[in-house]
């Protein structure tokens, strides 16, 4: 038993480095909701791939965890009221593949 745990502990240190590099390369997006036109139908929050769009008491959508947005634009093209706009957060970085 003791031998097994020691071998497992030795293999551990590698994984933390991998996600860090991924997070640096990930493209970031900004989702803006135009609440004047929103009718709170709930399509955006129901179909969100990452399930980050939440609704308040009046049914209006909001996002807390904006960095998790992958920019699939499903909510933008399925919004019947034209109330969602998605933009690249750093459009100037696009040519250099996310590197500054």
């Amino acid at each position: 038993m003791v031998k097994n745990t020691t071998t497992k502990q030795k293999k551990v240190p590698k994984p933390p480095t991998a996600p860090k590099t991924k997070a640096k390369e990930a493209k970031l997006y900004t989702v803006t909701f135009f609440h004047n036109w929103c009718k709170s139908c709930g399509i955006c929050s129901a179909f969100c791939l990452k399930e980050i769009i939440k609704t308040d008491a009046a049914g209006l959508p909001y996002i807390d965890d904006m960095d998790s947005c992958v920019g699939c634009r499903f909510c933008e093209i399925h919004c019947p009221d034209f109330a969602i706009a998605i933009k690249d957060r750093h459009p100037e970085r696009r040519s250099s593949n996310g590197k500054q």
Binding site: S40, C41, G42, I43, P80, D81
Partner: peptide, 8 residues
């Protein structure tokens, strides 16, 4: 109406 497909 809210959620109407015409907008899409």
């Amino acid at each position: 109406c809210p959620g109407c497909g015409n907008g899409i």
